[in-house]
Amino acid sequence: MSILDLPGGGRRYLQVAQHLADQITQGTYKAGERLPPERELSQQLDVSRTTIREALLALEIMRFIEIRVGAGVFVLGEHLRDTDGGQLAVKGETGPYEVLEARRLIEGQSAYLAATRATEAQIEEMAAIVKRMEGAIHNVPAFDAADAEFHALIAAASGNSVIEAYAVHLWWMRNSALWSRWYDQTRNPENRRRTIDDHQRIFRALQNRRPEAARTAMQLHIDVLTDRLMELQLSPPDAKQI
């Protein structure tokens, strides 16, 4: 079956989530059972692993399933499910992969422009923000605030108000339930240190007025986040993944 054969329109991961929810409701997958691994579901529905992953995250939010990292995805009892007349109760949320894809494009360009347009005062402020992040490895709220400030300052330094607005909006989309469901499971001091390393590379390219290097460093930083999304182990370690 292809995603093109599934009823309804809209985002593909929601179509897949509704299809799997219908199968659970119909008893194809019963309470307590483990769903097939991502690779198998991807082949069955002829969609990417990313789409399957986002669909599973949506189903977990609505309590159709429980994701036990490293053990698999298990069907929950009917009394726990959050539904609206048989339909998924939450619709319309943009999946994290699409947000990251857009950030790679928009923030890569904002870094490119900032390398040529940032004022010396903005460059100095970026350096101060990175230092604050270094001192907040174990203070998540302070780290997050500095992280957001760093990206917003680069967008402002691009000198393009449209790019800045898009960058700020994309950052705001991190507040979604889907984003939090996967991202919070990958949060640890090691990943925060990697973020600081990435920010230092971005900052050095901006400080040295190297636009191509700044864009590449920003895109690589976004790629690290994408890797974190894809590497979160949802299936058992012995299950083959594509």
Rank of each mutant, 00 (worst) to 15 (best):
L113S: 03
L14T: 01
F203V: 06
D144K: 09
D144A: 15
V162T: 09
P189N: 06
N208M: 10
N208A: 14
I3A: 14
G85A: 07
I154E: 03
W179K: 06
D238K: 02
R228G: 13
N191M: 04
T25Q: 08
N175S: 07
L220M: 08
P237R: 08
R12M: 07
T195D: 14
P189M: 03
A214D: 09
G70K: 03
I196E: 03
L35K: 03
G10M: 07
I3Q: 07
M1Y: 00
D198F: 01
V73C: 11
A115L: 06
A89H: 12
L20N: 02
R11S: 00
P37M: 01
V75C: 09
M126R: 05
E98M: 03
L229Y: 15
K240M: 07
A177D: 13
A152P: 00
R194V: 10
A21H: 10
E66H: 11
R68I: 12
Q87D: 13
D198C: 12
M218W: 03
E212I: 12
W182G: 06
L80W: 04
L153P: 03
M230C: 01
Y112V: 00
E149Q: 14
L229D: 02
G9Y: 01
T119P: 12
M1W: 00
G135P: 04
Q43K: 13
V99P: 01
T25L: 08
I3D: 12
R210D: 15
R193L: 10
Y13F: 12
R103P: 02
Y166K: 00
L14H: 15
L225F: 10
F143A: 12
Q18A: 13
R215E: 15
H169V: 06
A128I: 07
E98P: 00
Y183G: 10
A152Y: 12
D46V: 08
Q87E: 13
L225K: 11
T226M: 13
E98V: 01
H19Y: 04
E40M: 02
H19A: 15
A118C: 09
K240S: 02
F203K: 01
V69N: 02
G8Y: 12
W179Q: 07
Q23A: 14
T186C: 13
R194W: 04
V47A: 15
I163V: 12
T50Q: 10
